[in-house]
Nucleic acid binder design. Structure first.
Length: 526
RNA sequence: CGCGGGGUAGAGCAGUUGGCAGCUCGUCGGGCUCAUAACCCGAAGGUCGGUAGUUCGAGUCUAUCCCCCGCAACCA
């Protein structure tokens, strides 16, 4: 079985995770589910980046030790992923021995082979915040966090010799133009940071404690990226006794990141791997940010959306559908209350939900729930409908292969729309009233086609909305759901016996009420 | 100053190699009654940011200008 290794970044648990973090994880989860359906041995890693200055600070604010804080956050995170039915295979925490031990070994090795050297880190230091800032981070020359004076300070630090790998990295990019997607992000990174010359990276600090100690020099703590990025291989058991997973799954096939950390994944990470003489991941996908109307989500604006606020009220599937349907592949997404309500009522309730409902309803009404499809007679609209369904299924698959999830959903919904139109075209209620025996056969054909279209939709929906897909299969009382069955159209399937209970998939939202709820979230009132 | 992305119907967006300007929602009108007041059809609505070019022909190529958003490195 071909393997497929997919990762999310390890998130930094200094505070609650917002909808953007949830989106990254949803993307990875959707991909994993899809790859599994396609027969891959898909392995999905996520986790937490638990070290650093900020964790130390936040823990202190809450009267906890850093370890207590991250333990608590890890529990909360796992709870959230469970709530979101995220099917990860491993959850790595950088405070785990399996990670810390190997990071130390990696550090030693890089130092011994001359990639890491002792130098001096210089930056603007804010005493009360105990944090360094770069020149550009300062606001009016003052600390961006507390607004107080900063001092130029120096400390002894280890550095990674990135410059040494400049050429190899450039060559790598030339040979692998698809390494980073979307291409615009690649260009941005390449033009701004690689072409002008890479700078060496500071990989240790002495100004705080909460991190992995450098073995050979324990007053140094390993700083950020060497600790964080290596999680992708330590989680697989790299350099550990049992490295079977590492051997099996590395290199990663897809690493999903937010656009803010593309630089670290596109420059430092490949170089670390080169230094360790390991293969580089096949692809990094950097998605955009979620913004609210005109602005970015931010604490100061108070317009942060938390995943629970959506999921608890609208359900997991609707939340996932909205994000996956509206997020453009290579741009930011703008969330508006109107837009969400539109998608929910329009796409989920009216188009899909109602299609299933009216189909099941007709079969119960016209055939008492049981249709014999062995003697159907095709209507003049059938051929077009079938062709379209198979065509769109194929197109949706192509979109899925390219991570174009929004487009994939659009294709799936074209099958839904065509089915709704098909009902109008064939007028089953007229066929039902006809005395002609031929019309009865036509009617059976119409029902068979609707069932088959819905079945194909349910198959295609599996990676996106598991629960909804299951509900459709259950109501249709069909269980043919393997992926390849979306490529064959089986109108004649013997006797169809649909479910009696026709519970709506999605109940229409009261527009005004929900707009208000969503407005309040955006304004930070809830 | 630099880099990336945008500027297409009231709103949100598609527009592959240049060839009669599309989609969703909204609005207006019509149809249908199986269904979650859902579904289907039709119409109105755009000098495709400005200007100058290349071309038989440009939203699509070239130049230049204007406006909006984001990024500028050791901040996760």
């Amino acid at each position: 079985m071909e393997k497929y290794y997919i990762t999310t970044p390890i998130y930094y648990p200094s505070g609650k995770f917002h909808i953007g973090t949830a989106y990254t994880t949803i993307l990875a989860d959707t991909t994993k589910r899809y790859k599994k359906l396609r027969g891959y041995d898909a392995y999905f890693l996520t986790g937490l980046d638990e070290h650093g200055q900020k964790i130390e600070t936040v823990a202190k604010e809450n009267g906890k030790t850093p370890q207590e804080h991250v333990d608590f956050m890890a529990e909360k995170t796992i709870e959230l992923w469970k709530r979101m039915n995220i099917q990860y295979d491993d959850f790595i925490r950088t405070t785990e021995p399996r990670h810390e031990k190997i990071v130390q070994e990696i550090f030693d090795r890089l130092m011994n082979q001359g990639d890491i050297y002792m130098g001096e880190y210089e930056g603007w230091y804010c005493m009360p915040c105990e944090t360094y800032f770069t020149e550009t981070q300062l606001v009016d020359g003052k600390c961006p966090d507390c607004g107080r004076e900063v001092k130029k300070m120096k400390e002894e630090s280890y550095f990674f010799n990135m410059k040494k790998y400049q050429k190899r990295l450039e060559e790598f990019y030339e040979k692998n133009p698809d390494f980073i997607e979307p291409i615009s992000r690649k260009n941005e990174l390449f033009n701004n940071f690689i072409k002008p010359g890479i700078e060496d990276l500071c990989v240790s600090r002495t100004s705080f404690d909460w991190g992995i100690k450098v073995k050979a020099n324990p007053k140094h703590v390993i700083y950020v990226w060497l600790d964080a990025l290596t999680n992708y291989i330590t989680a697989l058991g790299y350099l550990s006794e049992d490295d079977s997973k590492f051997k099996k799954y590395w290199p990663a096939d897809l690493q999903i990141v937010g656009k803010d950390i593309i630089r670290f994944h596109g420059i430092y990470w490949p170089i670390f791997l080169m230094a360790l003489d390991l293969p580089i991941p096949k692809k990094i996908y950097a998605h955009g940010f979620i913004s609210i109307r005109d602005g970015k989500m931010s604490k100061s604006k108070g317009n942060i959306i938390y995943p629970e606020q959506m999921i608890d009220r609208y359900g997991l599937d609707a939340t996932k559908y909205y994000l996956l349907r509206e997020f453009p592949f290579d741009q930011d997404m703008t969330v508006t209350p109107e837009n969400f309500v539109n998608r929910y009522n329009g796409d989920l309730a009216n188009d899909l939900g109602n299609l299933l409902n009216r189909t099941i309803g007709m079969i119960n009404k016209y055939f008492e729930g049981t249709v014999d499809t062995s003697n159907i007679k095709e209507t003049e609209f059938d051929e077009v409908l079938k062709k379209l369904a198979l065509q769109k299924a194929k197109e949706a698959e192509e979109c899925l292969d390219n991570l174009h999830y929004s487009n994939a959903l659009e294709k799936i919904w074209q099958i839904v729309s065509a089915s709704n139109k098909y009902i109008d075209d064939t007028k089953p209620w007229v066929l039902f009233k006809s005395e002609d025996e031929q019309d009865k056969r036509l009617l059976a054909s119409v029902m068979a086609n609707l069932v088959e279209n819905l079945r194909i939709v349910a198959v295609l929906l599996q990676p996106f909305m598991e629960e909804t897909s299951n509900k459709i299969f259950a109501q249709l009382n069909i269980d043919l759901r393997d992926w390849d069955s979306s490529h064959e159209y089986i109108a004649n399937r013997g006797t169809i016996k649909v479910g009696k209970d026709v519970e709506p998939l999605f109940v229409r939202l009261e527009v005004e009420k929900e707009l208000e709820y969503l407005e309040n979230i955006i304004k930070g009132k809830k």
